[in-house]
Design a protein around this nucleic acid. Structure first.
Length: 396
DNA sequence: AAGCAGAGGTAAGGTCTC
DNA sequence: CCAAGAGACCTTACCTCT
């Protein structure tokens, strides 16, 4: 989907079309003040709110990053994952809106439903992306897939008012790259024969899976383009990147990918984490950290119950003020989805980590998940959470 | 008794993606 | 004075069992 989070907001506030808008930053839901009449006469229609009343990036205070920027904002150099303060310097006049996850999920379901009505074999890749298997869709091979891609774009637009970009290729690896070639609202077809002409000139970072670290390491080895990567001996790549990654890199550079479109999958872990508004100290801010910690455990427990899972491996994650991180986890005998149990075990994990430095982030994670069928029928069973956890939380 | 190989689990850290 | 949140997967190390 094109600038998904931002495009969803533009449906609600069409007066912002064509303007630089960024989504991200705060933890707020919808900006309540915006939706109320300044004279206090009650709520008003979002589409009638004058552009001049929207909050601007230059007035933003606090932590956070950009989740999505509209294309007009991107022309100022603003983009996903950029710190808000840096973005404010590049484009102070941009309008800022918080993420509305509920709304985003609603449109995510809508566009995915539009796709599966046409092509039933799909694999989720987050809220705004899917892989689609064209193989057995009637007409899926016409014009290399362009006809079907156009049909899908049309259906998504009719049902949601949103645009997307589609890449069609013999496998997922190449399709993903192809989808980047014609944004926004574009279609790109890549054939096997296009490997040398279209793929090899691209930078290695365009391969889905080669991130900043591998990109840097390849650069240090004198490899910039995918073609140069393809020219390397597989054994040499393995010697530098390990058996699995090295072999994969070699295959990827040659456009080879036989991974299937996986339609169903079980989650591996469920977690919640939060960055504090200011860095907190385990001793000095003990009470506040304790509250946040408990709330995280309760949220994870709620997520587990809602999704019907229990887990045996309970862990914490923290980030110090200097951005170094640490994780600890512990596996227990019996899978749980109980907030008090999570808090007890996570509290034990916390004791195993140095807490002299201030913290900026705390997270709670549950893994080794097992489905719990009854969870939906008996949510939050009212059994006693056990004795107070005061001692296990002594550090807080 | 000591050594080794392979499988599987646990733990910690890191990388990558949207 | 910066750098979110959720989740998947990989590597390495260590331990246990066979």
């Amino acid at each position: 989907m094109d600038a998904f989070y931002a495009s969803v907001e533009l449906l609600r506030y069409p007066q912002l079309k064509g303007l630089p808008v960024v989504i991200g930053g705060g933890r707020r839901k919808v900006d309540d003040a915006l939706l109320q009449h300044p004279d206090g006469s009650g709520p008003r229609e979002p589409c009638f709110i004058p552009v001049s009343e929207f909050p601007l990036l230059k007035d933003y205070v606090g932590r956070g990053v950009i989740t999505t920027a509209t294309y007009p904002a991107r022309r100022f150099g603003v983009g996903s994952a950029m710190g808000m303060m840096k973005a404010a310097k590049l484009c102070p006049q941009a309008i800022v809106l918080p993420v509305d996850f509920e709304e985003v999920r609603k449109y995510s379901r809508m566009f995915k439903n539009a796709i599966t009505e046409i092509a039933p074999v799909t694999q989720d890749r987050g809220v705004d992306e899917v892989y689609i298997d064209f193989t057995d869709v009637p007409g899926g091979q016409r014009e290399g897939g362009r006809v079907l891609a156009r049909l899908i774009q049309k259906s998504i637009f009719e049902k949601t008012g949103l645009t997307c970009s589609i890449g069609v290729a013999p496998n997922r690896l190449l399709a993903k790259m192809a989808s980047e070639f014609n944004k926004p609202n574009g279609i790109s077809i890549v054939y096997e024969e296009d490997l040398q002409s279209t793929i090899w000139p691209l930078h290695v970072r365009k391969i889905n899976g080669i991130g900043p670290k591998a990109g840097e390491k390849l650069a240090r080895l004198g490899i910039e383009t995918i073609g140069q990567l393809a020219a390397q001996d597989e054994r040499w790549l393995i010697s530098h990147f390990g058996k699995s990654t090295g072999a994969w890199m070699h295959r990827a550079a040659w456009g080879r990918d036989d991974s299937p479109v996986v339609t169903e999958s079980e989650p591996v872990s469920i977690s919640r984490e939060t960055t504090f508004e200011r860095d907190l100290h385990a001793v000095h801010d003990r009470a506040e950290l304790g509250r946040i910690f408990t709330a995280l455990c309760e949220q994870v427990a709620q997520d587990l119950q809602r999704k019907g899972y229990a887990g045996r491996t309970i862990g914490i994650k923290l980030r110090y003020a200097d951005f170094r991180g640490a994780t600890r986890d512990q596996t227990i005998a019996q899978a749980t989805q109980d907030a008090a149990m999570l808090r007890r075990v996570a509290g034990q994990c916390l004791k195993r980590v140095p807490l002299q430095q201030r913290l900026r982030l705390l997270g709670v994670r549950v893994a080794s998940l097992v489905p719990v069928a009854e969870a939906a029928l008996h949510p939050a069973a009212a059994h006693s959470p056990g004795p107070a956890q005061g001692d296990t939380l002594g550090l807080f």
